[in-house]
Amino acid sequence: MDSLSSPISRAAVLEERYRGRLPRSLDDLTGPDHGTVQLPLHVAWSGLTTFEVDRPPLCASMYHIVLTEGLREDLIAYINRELLVKQWPVLRTILSSPIRSVWESAFPELNDGRPTGS
């Protein structure tokens, strides 16, 4: 078997998928910083779909869903840069490894205040 036909790992496929959805900059993330957000069905297709951004646990839950299921346009519309940075220490513990890896490598500022390698 030559290198062109060798299997690609599931993690590599997922990382490429999530990398393709990234905003150009965290500054592009202009989602709401307070209030109630109703996610569309193509993002929140099961379970809770309405979130109070002012409540940190609900905000983290919404961001988890949007980061996992959302397209680039959804990330920009529903995630707020400041709240993402504030929520990141919690989010990074509940996100899958491919999502966490893609976001932290693209946006090193998410790692500010956290020792590398943790």
Rank of each mutant, 00 (worst) to 15 (best):
T49W: 04
Q87T: 12
A11G: 10
G20S: 10
T49H: 11
T68Q: 12
R55Y: 12
L71E: 15
K86E: 10
K86G: 02
Y63H: 06
R10I: 15
R21D: 04
A60R: 00
G31H: 04
L95S: 02
S105N: 15
L75Q: 00
R114G: 05
V37I: 13
R19S: 08
L67E: 01
A11N: 15
S61A: 15
I65E: 01
R24Q: 13
E16M: 12
W103L: 06
D33Y: 08
F107Y: 13
F51Q: 00
E69R: 06
L110T: 10
G35A: 07
L29V: 06
L110I: 11
T36N: 11
G31Y: 03
V13F: 09
S105H: 15
R17I: 13
L41M: 14
E104R: 06
A106F: 02
L91I: 07
S46N: 11
W45F: 14
Q38W: 07
V13K: 11
R19K: 13
P7I: 08
E104M: 11
L91A: 03
W88T: 06
P57A: 10
L4K: 09
R24I: 11
E69T: 03
E104Q: 14
R21I: 02
S6Q: 13
E69C: 12
S105R: 15
L84K: 00
E104C: 09
W103K: 00
L4N: 11
A11I: 14
V85K: 00
H34E: 12
E104K: 07
L58Q: 15
V13Q: 10
S96L: 09
I79C: 00
G117D: 05
I79K: 00
G70H: 00
T30Y: 03
R81C: 07
L91R: 00
S118G: 04
R92L: 07
S6V: 04
M1Q: 05
R72N: 14
L84A: 04
S3H: 12
E82V: 06
R72D: 10
R92N: 07
L83K: 00
E16A: 15
S9D: 14
R72C: 12
S46Q: 14
S3D: 13
F107K: 02
G113M: 13
P32Q: 08
P115E: 11
R19P: 01
S5R: 03
R92H: 11
G47W: 12
G35S: 09
L14I: 05
T116F: 04
L95D: 02
F51E: 00
T49D: 09
S9I: 09
P98M: 03
P98W: 03
E52G: 04
P98K: 03
L71A: 15
R114Y: 07
S96M: 11
A12I: 09
L67N: 03
